[in-house]
Design a protein around this nucleic acid. Structure first.
Length: 568
DNA sequence: GATCCTTTGAAGGAC
DNA sequence: GTCCTTCAAAGGATC
């Protein structure tokens, strides 16, 4: 992935030169990504096979048949959001989207669709992405568009252009979409469709947007068109598709549920009522059964209280965007495995690429805080009930030490829940460049500080000059980071989920001198050698491969205690 | 049907 | 200031 843009690709609005060869670049990227994905897939498959022979029933052919199917119950808001986050990303990548020849209809820029399918019949990621962007403008009756996955012969199963594929890929920037109740009229594109400041058709200049208020979230339906989108023409796309969605989608697909209404009267994707969250495809109203389940007025009040989701962080944004790609490249469907791949790819991202997501996440948080000033992440605590909390005492290092690993006696496990499966073999985790550019090492603990100003990152991040600098993290946590290959924050943050996992997995059940009662499992991940292996997405050079191999050999030959030795 | 798994990052409480 | 926990997305697996 690094430097595929050939330089300058990150500049917004300067991607015209990328038009002719962007597809080639994408193909190159796809090739390298496919190599990476295949390797990941091999790792995962082997690990999964080793995990349980029972899983052998899920052969490749069977998995191939179980290609990712579009989910019919995706929240339409998220559908809408994702089109534009994807567009935004591509624009920032110097990607497929360019300054449109048709200013009012930028999403008509559809790259090569000649071979949208993979060999196994699955839709290639690129084609999938393209279709996501173009489907709203396809001359497909709304009913057909809504038919999508419910159709007995889904488009993506045939060789025809799967115009409905769109509806099942969501994008991280979804919350950033501008919502509008205006209806889109292809013949008379709204005044703000032009990327120009002055609308060529109406001549109505757009008023500048208050700098302190990010325009990703809507101000009001009527004011949407007056907001100059910071992403240039993408803002027009946002409006176009949001308008299309709201006009083409049936009320079933575009519920006007009050739960998703911000105080401004604008539905916001972050607002999800519990009922809707569980059954996104159902109607707005709670089912009678759910009403009947409410034990009392307190419960009713809770039900009435909209569930405001946390803003997505950078990795979540990245994950949402790349998941479909990984799923398309691999036959894997388990999100846990996919997330491992995504985590590795995340580490392989260049600093600039990660910075984009950090910036997006920062904006998300900004807008989220502006929209919901009184909201606290704590408000969502307890909304999910996790069974693993029952095992909390056993996830402590002491418990881990005293508890035999499951491979000794599988029945010894405290709970009957599925044992932690290390989808990626531990030795293969070495393949994951902890930070090809020290990106995770210096991932801004407070991205706003590092990315507050567009010019700030380079200035504030001395790591730009010192890619592997660990300056932004406290010493004590850097040890964790160093050993686990994770940023200090995540090393601790992931302890909740990993701790329970570690208690049942032999390879990560060694509590090494972490400070205090830190239960974060120390994964046997070797010292980052990312400088040798620049990217998961680009095959290492022979030199890198040799270094990689020797590194693996060295790592594997070492006792686990050495590998996990703490610098304490 | 609810929860787990898995990833990283952010937030907030506890100490 | 540090540590720890929870949640955010995703969907198959498991309970």
């Amino acid at each position: 992935m690094p430097q595929l843009n050939g330089g300058g690709g990150d500049d917004l609005g300067a991607n015209d030169e990328m038009i002719s060869f962007k597809d080639e670049g994408e193909q190159e990227e796809k090739i390298s990504e496919n190599v990476s994905a295949e390797r990941d897939l091999d790792d995962l498959k082997s690990s999964l096979v080793n995990e349980s022979e029972n899983n052998s029933s899920s052969s490749d052919s069977e998995q191939a048949e179980r290609r990712p199917q579009p989910r019919p119950d995706l929240d339409s808001y998220e559908k809408t959001r994702d089109y534009f986050s994807e567009a935004f990303r591509r624009q920032q990548d110097g990607g497929f989207f360019k300054s449109p020849h048709y200013p009012g209809y930028p999403i008509f820029m559809i790259p090569d669709l000649t071979n949208p399918y993979l060999s196994n019949g699955a839709l290639s990621p690129s084609a999938r992405t393209y279709l996501q962007m173009k489907w709203p403008l396809l001359d497909v009756p709304g009913a057909a568009g809504l038919k999508d996955s419910r159709s007995p012969t889904p488009g993506h199963l045939s060789n025809k252009v799967p115009v409905v594929q769109h509806a099942h890929h969501v994008h991280p920037l979804t919350p950033l979409i501008t919502y509008s109740n205006e209806h889109f009229s292809p013949g008379t594109p709204p005044s703000h469709l032009s990327p120009e400041i002055l609308d060529p058709k109406t001549g109505i200049p757009r008023t500048p947007h208050p700098s302190e208020l990010s325009p990703y979230y809507p101000l009001s339906p009527g004011a949407v068109g007056q907001i100059p989108h910071p992403l240039g023409w993408l803002g027009c796309v946002v409006f176009v598709v949001s308008s299309l969605v709201s006009s083409r989608f049936s009320p079933h697909m575009m519920p006007h549920h009050p739960h998703g209404m911000h105080q401004t009267g604008i539905p916001h994707p972050a607002i999800v009522s519990p009922a809707i969250k569980q059954e996104p495809n159902t109607h707005d109203h709670m089912s009678p059964s759910m009403h009947s389940k409410s034990p009392g007025p307190v419960k009713k009040e809770e039900d009435k209280k909209p569930h405001i989701k946390k803003p997505l962080n950078a990795f979540m944004l990245y994950m949402k965007e790349m998941r479909a790609k990984v799923v398309a490249e691999c036959t894997l469907k388990e999100s846990a495995a996919i997330n491992q791949i995504l985590g590795r790819r995340w580490h392989s991202l260049s600093r600039e690429e990660q910075a984009k997501y950090y910036e997006l996440a920062r904006k998300e948080r900004q807008l989220h805080s502006q929209l919901y000033p009184g909201w606290s992440a704590r408000d969502n605590y307890g909304k999910r009930k996790k069974r693993k909390r029952d095992n909390k005492p056993d996830s402590t290092p002491e418990a881990i030490l005293t508890k035999p690993p499951p491979f000794v006696s599988p029945d010894f496990s405290i709970s009957n829940k599925k044992q932690c499966v290390q989808y990626l073999p531990s030795e293969k985790m070495c393949d994951s460049p902890a930070s090809s550019h020290g990106s995770m090492l210096d991932s801004p603990a407070t991205p706003s500080a590092a990315l507050a100003s567009p010019a700030a990152p380079a200035a504030t991040h001395s790591e730009q000059a010192q890619p592997l600098s660990l300056t932004t993290k406290p010493e004590g946590r850097l040890h964790h980071h160093f050993l686990t290959g994770k940023p200090s924050g995540s090393a601790s943050s992931s302890s909740s989920s990993s701790s329970s996992s570690s208690s049942s997995h032999p390879s990560i059940s060694i509590p090494i001198g972490t400070s205090g009662s830190h239960s974060t499992p120390i994964l046997p991940r070797p010292i980052p050698f990312s400088s040798l292996h620049h990217s998961m997405l680009s095959p290492p050079s022979p030199f890198h491969q040799a270094a990689l191999h020797s590194h693996h050999a060295l790592f594997q030959s070492q006792p686990l205690s050495l590998v996990t030795k703490s610098s304490d």
